[in-house]
Design a protein around this nucleic acid. Structure first.
Length: 464
RNA sequence: GUGGGCGUAGCUCAGUUUGGUAGAGCGCCGCGUUGUGGUCGCGGAUGUCGCGGGUUCAAGUCCCGUCGUUCACCCCA
């Protein structure tokens, strides 16, 4: 069999990289669970009519088909999910009778999109989602809560600092209606182009595409320019002199979110009200979130979400929700590729037990078993080569300790930390490596800050 | 899905302009070093030049296709 060629957009990690991915996913799970969110996993496939709901035909869904299907080209009516929110909405409807509301859940799963891949954007990728879903009415404080949980989760990750940008669809839609825009949705779509084209071009599109006057367009741009780290945006919006009921609701809601997360703002995480944020035209009805990674703005958003008041509905009952997702593949793979992150070693082993000669391999096996019995990941040397070779084997794999079994009746066991060269007598029944060497860890070679332990934003707050 | 850049040793890359013997550094292997690696010294091997086809006496180099990768658009994690 010849060497297989890689499949575009389906990234696979090496063992040491997988260590980092596991650490990130585990960290996220810990924080989510700490806040009482339950983990679920949904199936990989959904009926196509679910996936393509709301006319989202541009989602590039991968469709399933039986190979033996008689009718050529006939699909199974199923596709791989392209996010975790749509399957979750279906899951809620299907299990509504068995779930307790408000239902707080998280998922860490793969999703698939048939788009052309590039850095940070893949056809198969892992993301982490948290959502809260309620029956009929979801209190607004949950918008604040999911933001806080994600903020805490992000601050605890061994990744560059994250920024959560927040806006509110009611705010901007109310504003646009307040200035007399006929088609607020169209205005939102145009304003969303601000990071792609110049303000002048957006202004022109607002006039030609959205039917605004020059002065209306200027007001929209003035709104979009507002970005604050606290609730001071309220005064800035008011200064524009636009009045609308929806605008007032949106201002109050956005202020609540920004104020509610303000105490988590720190070195690892920051929050901003950014009134140009729109997030497309899909199901969001109020709060909208977007996450960016500091220094990696070229990746665009690495997470996002918001309030959706009508994503799930069985016709009689509506289940409003609010949630945020974070792109694990999107952030991790570029960081790994650029050497900003690395696993400390590609194997779990903390100890390599040397083999003196093949006749005494059993002695080495006993030592290894004693160490393993106490939870120390241990492997035994492949061959009874010169000790120099056996040490080099450990060095290549980042195994920090090499164990030399007692040789002869009155000899004693010795263990060597090959990183510094210390070699000491040791008892396989009681010796333990330092806790930080027991398992592979995440290294952040290009930054000064240690990857472990990660302080949460809350802990930093308490210290300062 | 549309358009552009790139693809040479395990890694980072030079060589492509003007077709003419496949290169460097790092890493790897061996020896100095009979069992303890890393430093140093000496020696050694790197390879379907992404893949397929075409032009030519001759292709890493030019042309076409394809796959991979990357950038922009689109969309978004």
């Amino acid at each position: 069999m010849s060497k297989p060629t890689p499949l575009s957009g389906f990234p696979e990690l090496l063992p040491a990289e997988r260590v980092v991915e596991r650490a990130v996913a585990d960290s996220l799970r810990r924080t989510f669970a700490l806040h009482g969110f339950a983990e679920i996993e949904t199936r990989a496939v959904e009926p196509l009519d679910q996936l393509l709901r709301k006319g989202e035909t541009s989602k590039e869904v991968y469709v399933l088909r039986r190979l033996q299907e008689e009718a050529a080209g006939k699909d199974s009516g199923m596709g791989l999910h392209f996010d975790l929110t749509v399957p979750f909405a279906r899951y809620v409807l299907e299990n509504a009778g068995k779930l307790e509301f408000p239902f707080r859940r998280f998922q860490v799963q793969k999703a698939w999109r048939g788009e052309r891949p590039q850095e940070g954007r893949y056809r198969e990728f892992t993301q982490a989602d948290i959502d809260v879903v309620m029956k009929d009415e979801l209190p607004f404080h949950f918008d604040v809560e999911v933001a806080r949980v994600m903020a805490e989760a992000l601050a605890a990750l061994p990744l560059p600092p994250m920024t959560l940008r927040v806006n509110n669809r009611k705010l901007i839609e109310g504003f646009y209606r307040g200035i007399g825009a006929e088609d607020p949705a169209r205005v939102i779509a145009v304003i969303d182009k601000l990071d792609k084209v110049t303000a002048d071009e957006v202004s022109g599109m607002l006039v030609t595409d959205a039917g605004l006057t020059d002065s209306q367009a200027e007001q929209c741009l003035a709104l979009a320019r507002i970005t604050t780290a606290d609730a001071s945006f309220v005064d800035q919006v008011r200064a524009l002199g636009v009045e609308h009921e929806l605008l007032e609701t949106g201002l109050a809601e956005l202020a609540q979110v920004v104020d509610g997360v303000a105490d988590l703002d720190g070195e690892r995480f920051s929050v901003r009200a950014q009134l140009s944020l729109a997030r497309g035209l899909d199901y969001y009805t109020g709060t909208v979130f977007e996450i960016s990674m500091d220094g990696f703005e070229n990746l665009k958003s690495v997470g996002g979400g918001g309030r959706y008041d009508a994503l799930a509905s069985d016709g009689k009952t509506t289940y409003p929700g609010v949630g945020i997702s974070f792109g694990i593949s999107r952030t991790l793979i570029p960081l790994l590729a650029r050497g900003h992150l690395a696993g400390s070693r590609p194997v779990p082993s903390a100890v390599l037990v040397a083999v003196v000669d093949e006749e005494s391999r059993a002695v080495s096996n006993v030592v290894a078993q004693q160490l393993r019995a106490r939870g120390i990941p241990t492997e035994v040397a492949v061959a009874a080569q010169k000790f120099g070779k056996q040490i080099r084997y450990a060095e290549r794999r980042g195994i920090p300790f090499v164990w030399f079994p007692a040789d002869g009746a009155d000899g004693s066991h010795q263990v060597k930390d090959i990183r510094v060269g210390n070699q000491v007598d040791a008892d396989p029944a009681s010796w333990e490596p330092p806790a930080e060497d027991l398992h592979p860890t995440v290294l952040t070679p290009l930054t000064d800050q240690p990857a472990q332990p990660h302080q949460s934003a809350q802990q930093q707050e308490e210290i300062s």
